[in-house]
Amino acid sequence: MVLITGILRKPRSNKLYTHDEYLRIEEKAKSKNEFYLGLIIPKAGSKAIHNEISANITTALKIAIRGLKQKYLVLNSDQKIRIDSEDTTVYPDALVICEKPEFWKGREDIIVNPYVIVEMLSKSTQNYDRGEKFMLYQRLPSLKEYIVVEQHTPLVESWYQLEENTWQKTAAQGTDGLLSIRSLGITLCLDEVYEHIDF
């Protein structure tokens, strides 16, 4: 077991792997695993509500950025992020890249320059997503905004980087709520995020 922000996460084994070994295992794996300081840690499977909200957010972001002068790329939860300084590779639920993706060692399944990252919260991961995972993401020089989304109540929170090591939190609540995503200059409508979700 590995204690991360008060959550016990069970690694695949107690063996320490190199990142290259992890990538070879991940290519053949039937489910997703993350890499944390040599440990391979299975990622919890997603339920229908998680998948639907995640798809809604990805769609809403893609529609909202279409008219912008700046070019952005929206990717889903299959895209890995490498945090080299922390020897960590993780899967976000969604992300936005400014201009062009920068691939880790030329691998198109791993990027190093997310501009906005979105994570869906669950009871088992919310402390990790709000705590240590956010701290890991802050090591990425490209990251400008971090968004977390509740599954069982209409609530979306954003941390926007005002300057180095200074993040400002805003929140929108209720299906009629509007969240300003300042890094992109767009507004996220919670009725779109939670479309077809019953509370």
Score class of each variant (00 low, 15 high):
L3W: 05
I4A: 07
G6P: 02
K10Y: 12
P11G: 11
P11R: 08
R12M: 15
N14K: 11
Y17T: 10
T18W: 12
T18S: 13
Y22D: 04
K28L: 15
K28V: 12
K30N: 09
S31V: 15
S31E: 13
N33T: 15
F35T: 00
G45R: 01
G45K: 00
S46L: 06
N51C: 12
N51H: 09
I53Q: 06
T58R: 09
L61A: 12
K62F: 13
I65K: 02
L68N: 05
K69F: 04
Q70Y: 04
K71G: 06
K71P: 02
K71E: 05
Y72T: 04
Y72F: 15
L73D: 06
S77M: 04
D78C: 15
D78M: 15
R82P: 01
D84C: 07
D87P: 09
T88A: 02
V90S: 03
Y91A: 00
D93M: 02
I97C: 07
C98F: 02
C98Y: 02
P101C: 06
E102P: 00
E102D: 09
E108W: 03
E108P: 11
I110H: 09
V112F: 00
N113H: 06
I117M: 01
S122T: 13
S124C: 06
Q126F: 15
N127Q: 13
D129W: 00
E132P: 10
K133M: 01
K133P: 00
F134M: 11
M135R: 08
L140R: 01
K144D: 07
E145R: 05
I147L: 05
Q151I: 03
P154Y: 13
L155H: 13
V156R: 07
S158T: 15
S158R: 11
L162G: 08
E163N: 13
E163D: 10
N165I: 13
K169C: 07
K169W: 07
T170Y: 07
A172W: 01
Q173W: 13
Q173N: 10
T175L: 08
T175F: 05
L178S: 04
L184K: 01
G185I: 10
T187W: 13
L190T: 05
V193H: 00
F199P: 07
